[in-house]
Structure formats: structure tokens, C-alpha cells
């Protein structure tokens, strides 16, 4: 798994590529929690190149979301691949995360 972060004027983008599993999710958790620690107002997670996500990856996003909501931050998911979306739907997380078709839509909303 590869993680890139990009800082914009009023939001940050976390782009993830590869597979998110029990092996790689601790690195993702470190990235997400570092943003929580800085109270970043809006984080957009670009999932376009994610090939797989397991329950530990989902748990990482849920944990980050809960911590961000505590300071009224926003966690947005963008460009979610079909298979990852199926997993979000099954886990009923499609109703919890703000999901956007593009980074532009996520940034504008």
C-alpha cells in the first residue's frame, strides 16, 4: 500500500493505492490520526487506486471519522472503486461516510 498526502488551502487529500489489510492499515492509521491530532478541518480520502480493503481498514476510517466529528471536522471519501463501495454498502458505511464521485466534488461540497 502507498499513501500520499497533499495539503490544499482548506483541506487535505490522502491518496491511497494498493491493498488495505491488517498488514498495511497501521500505516494508514498513523496518517489519519496525525491529521486528527492537527485538527485538520476537512480530509478527503482518494480511494481510486485501492484494490482491496478489509475490516481493519474500515475500522481505521471509522475511528478517524469519530475523532474528527468530535472537533466538527469532515472526512470525505472520493472515487470509491465498485468493490470497495460494495464493502461500504454491506457494512452500512455508505450512510456514515460522505462519498463523492470526484475529488473536485468532494472539495466543492
Amino acid at each position: 500500500m502507498k499513501i500520499d498526502t497533499a495539503e490544499h488551502s482548506d483541506y487535505m487529500v490522502v491518496s491511497i493505492a494498493g491493498e488495505i489489510d491488517m498488514y498495511s492499515s497501521p500505516a494508514l492509521r498513523d496518517t489519519m490520526l496525525s491529521m486528527v491530532k492537527k485538527n485538520v478541518a476537512t480530509v478527503i480520502v482518494n480511494l481510486k487506486d485501492v484494490k482491496y480493503i478489509d475490516s481493519s481498514g474500515i475500522a481505521t476510517f471509522v475511528e478517524a471519522l469519530k475523532k474528527m466529528l468530535a472537533y466538527k471536522g469532515k472526512l470525505k471519501m472520493a472515487q470509491v472503486p465498485d468493490r470497495v463501495m460494495e464493502i461500504f454498502n454491506f457494512s452500512k458505511l455508505d450512510k456514515v461516510f460522505d462519498i463523492y464521485g470526484s475529488l473536485e466534488d468532494a472539495a466543492k461540497s
Binding site: 478489509d54 475490516s55 474500515i58 475500522a59 481505521t60 471509522v62 475511528e63 469519530k66 464493502i87 454491506f90 457494512s91 452500512k92 458505511l93 456514515v96
Partner: peptide, 17 residues
């Protein structure tokens, strides 16, 4: 429960699916 949003506890649901 799937409706209960918190980290963890999802793995067995994927196995049973």
C-alpha cells in the same frame, strides 16, 4: 451489529457473507 458504527467487529460478517 452492522448498524452500530464503531471500529472493529466486522470480520465475522464478511466470513458469514
Amino acid at each position: 451489529e452492522l448498524d452500530e458504527v464503531r471500529p472493529g467487529g466486522l470480520g465475522i460478517h464478511f466470513i458469514k457473507k
